[in-house]
């Protein structure tokens, strides 16, 4: 069964570009060995950490979108746990959530189309028609300034 996973790892700021590339190559090798495919790689670059992890205050974030089985992710997880260069990593399964999101989106647009047809309007909303976009100064929403108690 094919599943999609997101893997984010934070590499120590002392790591060189070559070392980061090497980590990526490691992931690729494991994926290939266990029948997975890397769909996308995204390097977010150096970012400040929200809190200090050991001696580190910064880290390089890398995101990989991997298609493969659970065994593959288990192996990557195990490998990353023992790699000193990686200070944090996170594996999240994304395919199920994505289908749910897509379903709610299509459902919403379908109901709006159905209702519009029932009202005798063209199915798609023309630009500038209908409810105006939500402004940030509309005051019935939470705006972070309100503090209770």
């Amino acid at each position: 069964m094919k599943r999609k996973y997101e893997l984010v790892y934070v590499v120590s700021p002392d790591a060189t570009d070559a070392q980061i590339a090497d980590l990526h190559a490691q992931v690729e090798a494991i994926a290939q060995r266990l029948g997975g495919v890397i769909e996308k790689t995204d390097n977010w670059g150096r970012r400040r950490l929200a809190y200090e992890i050991g001696p580190h205050k910064e880290g390089t974030y890398v995101l990989e979108l991997i298609e493969g089985g659970g065994e593959l992710m288990k192996e990557i997880d195990r490998r990353f746990k023992v790699t000193d260069l990686i200070i944090r990593h996170l594996v999240v399964r994304v395919d199920e959530e994505q289908t749910v999101i897509d379903r709610t989106r299509t459902k919403r647009s379908e109901t709006s189309r159905r209702r519009r047809i029932a009202r005798g309007l063209p199915p798609d909303r023309a630009p500038g028609e209908g409810q105006r976009e939500i402004d940030d100064d509309r005051d019935d929403r939470f705006d972070m300034t309100e503090v209770e108690r």
Binding site: V10, L49, A50, Y51, Y61, R88, L90, V92
Partner: peptide, 10 residues
């Protein structure tokens, strides 16, 4: 999840 990756503080 964001906290785990140090994107947001604990």
């Amino acid at each position: 999840r964001a906290r785990q990756l140090a994107l947001i503080p604990y």
